[in-house]
């Protein structure tokens, strides 16, 4: 999609230039259209360079921002041009002490209808929208591509899951691209948990361990399945758990900067809808 002279892009460029000129940040992380129409991530440190900024295609910067800040000098501040899911990923990384809150600034852009439909995204906009129009998201559970894996007859679903997971070549692309996967060393590389040298990746161990580690922090950005070279719909692994957290605890990852995952707290601090906690006395019956 060509949006070179759209009002949204102009607004983002203006905000980014102002941020640099007013010295609120030292660099702006975004996509640059370079020589030969090649588009790649770039740290803009001079406001003139920002003329080459573009907003398409979908590119997620959260993990990149984290790594940049880690190797930069102390006091280096970064502004990030980010979509909804990206902003949520940044919030989760801030909560988990991977990015210092005062060293990052977001320039939030809302996604269009086409992008929301392509990602099956429920929330195609950041909480702080700087440019673009907030669009209604779509419910992934209404789409057959998701339903066929998560809802309905068990034996059919087993067959579907096995068919896609058997393609896995254990490239670790999903883990590498996921903004939340930040552990070094990673448990998936430990022979005790995931047997080495087994291709396709041990379905039970590799995929379930990875999926559950993200249970309460996945922001549904889709980077995992975008990165997968054999097209496994990895996001489907997370959707049911995300839905459960919303229904039982009114919790969605990446929305609240202060609230930690409800499954870490007891039932008094983080109540579960529909669960009645008896006094210990009544449980003696």
């Amino acid at each position: 999609m060509r949006e070179e002279r759209s009002p949204m892009l102009e607004e983002v460029k203006r905000l980014a230039k102002t941020a640099l000129q007013e010295q609120r940040v030292e660099g702006v992380l975004g996509l640059k259209k370079d020589v030969g129409n090649v588009i790649q991530p770039h740290i803009f440190e001079r406001s003139d360079d920002l003329d080459a900024l573009v907003l398409e295609p979908k590119w997620l910067f959260a993990k990149l921002a984290m790594k940049i800040l880690r190797v930069s000098d102390t006091g280096y501040r970064l502004a990030v041009v980010c979509r909804g899911c990206d902003e949520r990923a940044i919030v989760e990384l801030v909560k988990r002490n991977q990015i210092a809150e005062n060293s990052i600034m977001t320039i939030g852009i809302a996604c269009g209808d086409a992008q929301a439909a392509a990602c099956l995204c429920e929330r195609p906009y950041p909480e702080n929208i700087a440019a673009g129009e907030k669009k209604q998201g779509v419910d992934p559970f209404n789409d057959e591509r998701v339903r066929q894996f998560l809802v309905g007859d068990t034996s059919e679903r087993v067959a579907r899951w096995l068919r896609v997971l058997r393609r896995c070549i254990k490239c670790y692309g999903c883990r590498n691209s996921c903004p939340i996967c930040i552990c070094e060393p990673c448990k998936l590389e430990d022979d005790t948990w995931v047997p080495k040298g087994v291709i396709p990746a041990e379905m039970m161990c590799f995929h379930l361990i990875r999926a559950f580690h993200l249970s309460d922090t996945c922001v549904a950005c889709g980077a995992c399945q975008d990165a997968c070279p054999v097209g496994i719909p990895l996001l489907n692994l997370q959707l049911s758990m995300r839905r459960t957290l919303t229904e039982k605890f009114c919790y969605e990852a990446g929305i609240d900067r202060e609230r930690k995952s409800p499954i870490l707290r007891n039932f008094f601090d983080e109540e579960e809808k529909g669960r009645d906690i008896p006094d210990w006395v009544s449980s003696l019956e």
């Binding site: 899951w161 995929h207 309460d216 692994l237 758990m241």
Partner: peptide, 9 residues
């Protein structure tokens, strides 16, 4: 929550 994942897969 883990049971939800087992059910999803």
């Amino acid at each position: 929550l883990f049971q939800v994942l087992l059910e999803a897969t």
